Measured scan of single mutants.
Amino acid sequence: MTYKLILNGKTLKGETTTEAVDAATAEKVFKQYANDNGVDGEWTYDDATKTFTVTE
């Protein structure tokens, strides 16, 4: 399945996607991606759209 991440960081905004077997796996990938890019904030997940959002 394809999962999407929306980044609403103070210095980085954008979107990315990943292929993962489940939401938990996608979340690990996205949290590492956000961490690597210096984005740390509040996370939400919408199962209907398979979209994670992180907002600083």
Rank of each mutant, 00 (worst) to 15 (best):
F52E: 00
T17H: 12
K13R: 11
G14I: 14
A26V: 02
T25L: 07
K10S: 11
D22N: 09
Y45M: 02
T25F: 07
E15R: 08
G41N: 02
A26Y: 00
L7W: 11
N8P: 03
D47Y: 08
E19D: 09
K50C: 05
D22W: 03
E42C: 11
G38Q: 08
E27D: 05
T18R: 05
E56D: 08
K13D: 05
D46P: 00
V39Y: 07
K50T: 04
F30T: 00
E42D: 12
Y33E: 02
Y45D: 00
T25N: 08
D36N: 10
F30E: 00
A24R: 10
D47R: 07
A24Q: 12
K28Q: 12
Y45T: 01
G38F: 07
K28M: 11
F52N: 00
T44D: 10
M1W: 13
N35F: 15
A20Y: 02
T53H: 06
T16L: 15
E27Y: 15
Y3D: 01
E56K: 04
I6K: 05
K28C: 08
F30M: 03
G9L: 13
V39P: 02
Y3N: 01
V54R: 01
L7D: 01
L5S: 00
T18H: 06
D46A: 04
T53I: 09
V21Y: 12
A23P: 12
Y3E: 01
A26H: 00
T18K: 04
Y3T: 01
W43P: 00
A34E: 01
K50M: 12
D46S: 06
A20F: 04
T17W: 12
K28H: 09
W43E: 00
D22I: 03
T17M: 10
V39H: 04
D40Y: 15
K10P: 10
E19I: 15
K13F: 09
D40G: 08
V39G: 03
Y45E: 00
K13G: 05
A48N: 10
A20T: 05
K13N: 07
V54P: 00
V29W: 14
A26E: 00
T25I: 07
E42V: 14
T16Y: 15
A20V: 05
M1H: 15
M1E: 13
D36S: 11
D22E: 04
Q32H: 08
K31Y: 06
E19C: 13
T25Y: 08
F52P: 00
L12H: 13
D46G: 02
M1A: 12
A34H: 01
K10G: 07
A24K: 11
K28E: 11
G38M: 07
G9K: 04
V21D: 11
K4A: 04
K28N: 08
A23T: 07
K4C: 06
A23I: 11
D47L: 08
Q32W: 05
T17F: 14
E56N: 06
Y33D: 01
K10C: 12
A20C: 07
G41C: 02
G14W: 15
Y33R: 03
Y33V: 05
Y45S: 01
Y3G: 01
D46I: 05
K4R: 13
D47T: 09
K50N: 09
A34W: 03
E27M: 15
D47P: 14
D36P: 01
N35E: 13
A24M: 12
M1R: 10
T16G: 05
G9H: 08
T11C: 14
W43G: 00
K10H: 12
Y33A: 03
V54I: 10
E15M: 13
Y45H: 02
K50W: 06
G9T: 15
K13H: 11
D47I: 10
W43I: 03
A34Q: 02
D36A: 13
A34K: 01
D46Y: 04
L5A: 03
T2Q: 10
F52L: 01
Y33S: 02
E42S: 10
T55V: 09
T44F: 10
I6P: 00
F30Q: 00
T55R: 06
T2I: 15
Q32E: 10
Y3R: 01
V29A: 12
A48D: 11
G38H: 08
E56H: 07
T44P: 00
V39M: 07
A24N: 08
D22F: 04
F30D: 00
M1L: 13
Y33L: 05
Y33Q: 03
A34G: 03
D40T: 15
Y45R: 02
T44Y: 09
T49A: 08
D46N: 11
T25S: 14
F30W: 02
A48K: 12
D46V: 05
D22C: 05
K31V: 06
N8V: 13
T53L: 06
T17R: 09
T44C: 08
G41M: 03
K4W: 10
E42Y: 14
N37G: 04
T55C: 06
E56C: 05
T49C: 05
G14Q: 11
T11L: 12
D46Q: 05
L12W: 14
A48W: 07
T16R: 11
K31L: 07
V54Y: 03
N35G: 09
E42R: 09
K50F: 10
F30I: 01
Y45Q: 01
D22M: 03
A20N: 03
V54Q: 01
A48E: 14
N37P: 01
L12Y: 15
E27T: 04
T44Q: 11
D47G: 09
E27K: 10
K31I: 08
G38L: 07
A23Q: 10
T18A: 09
Q32S: 08
F52V: 01
T55I: 08
E15Q: 11
Y33T: 03
W43S: 00
E19S: 12
D40F: 15
G38T: 03
N8D: 11
T2M: 13
G38E: 06
T49D: 04
L5N: 00
E15H: 11
T51D: 01
D36E: 12
T17C: 09
K31F: 06
T16H: 14
G9A: 07
F52R: 00
A26K: 00
A20I: 02
